[in-house]
Design a protein around this nucleic acid. Structure first.
Lengths: 173, 173
DNA sequence: GTCTATAGCAAGATAGAC
DNA sequence: GTCTATCTTGCTATAGAC
């Protein structure tokens, strides 16, 4: 683990991205904080985009696993809770993404997030939704991710039960 | 209204900012779409920031008026409805802001939005909140603004009643 | 009020030595 | 793997003529 420059780059980059935004962080800043030079970064990552992508990747894989590995018939409250856990696990990267959606849009993350949410709603309420159900689901899921971000510094168990409960009643379940 | 170049600049800039993000839009693009040159913009706006600020300003003033001009004793559902209307009126600019929060962070919009939301929650539930109430309020208000953005193309009356109702039950009122 | 021309800068990225 | 040096590009912004 020592000598693992690639890992250190990822850590420092994520730190800076979360702190001041992806767009407002240059490769120069990253390399300077690491005590190396800019070109050294290019030995480990093909491009700036490659670096950003590597940071977002774990979240993407986790979500895809989440929406695939479930059958629709489960307990909706449990699903809401698991979804909250997912948001919570990745809340740092989510803060980063949410603060720079337009920068990350060419990684087609906006469209993906849309698709994921639709799938999760389908798992919760079935594939055929009324507009009313759709809107309620937006309030519920949108509100829950806001919580994972806004209360990121509190202990999980002080946030999750209330957030899940509020989402559940918003959904009408 | 003709000859009002300043107004045309504002309109085109907002269009492009909403479409592709503030950060991804250059003054060159704005001037080209207008059929004028880049320096002409500087006759009407002191800087790029000045232009961005001019676009966001109406939303800011509207929110400040909203949180000031109310006494806490009103009907909470009516307040939720009026808040939804506010989000709805400015949904284009909100999309723009939300997609580039880190770019706009030097206008301290993040901090302001936080403060506004705190004030609105105080109007809804009083000044002394339990953590649980706080979390429920985050779900309710966060979910409602998500709706104003996600269903921006639908008619207001197809979205508002359900969104307000979902927010109200999430709040526990 | 709008133009041409350009200054000045910082970014991402590459070449090639060590 | 990391360095020095440099290329290229695009941006905001200004000077000054018309």
């Amino acid at each position: 683990m020592p000598g693992d420059t690639k890992g250190r780059i990822l850590a420092v980059a994520r730190e800076l991205f979360v702190e001041q935004g992806v767009q407002n962080t240059s490769l120069r800043q990253i390399s300077e904080r690491l005590g190396i030079t800019k070109p050294a970064l290019y030995y480990h990552f093909a491009s700036r985009d490659d670096l950003v992508r590597s940071i977002v990747q774990p979240l993407i894989e986790d979500i895809e696993r989440f929406v695939r590995g479930r059958e629709p018939a489960g307990d909706p409250r449990e699903l809401l809770g698991d979804y909250f856990d997912l948001m919570w696990r990745h809340r740092e990267v989510i803060v980063m993404m949410v603060r720079d959606l337009s920068t990350l849009s060419h990684l087609d993350l906006g469209a993906r997030m849309f698709a994921w949410r639709r799938q999760i709603v389908a798992l919760l309420l079935g594939p055929d939704l009324t507009r009313e159900q759709h809107i309620r689901a937006t309030v519920a899921l949108g509100g829950m991710s806001d919580c994972a971000v806004e209360y990121a510094d509190l202990p999980l168990e002080e946030v999750k039960p209330t957030a899940v409960e509020a989402a559940a009643v918003a959904l009408g379940i």
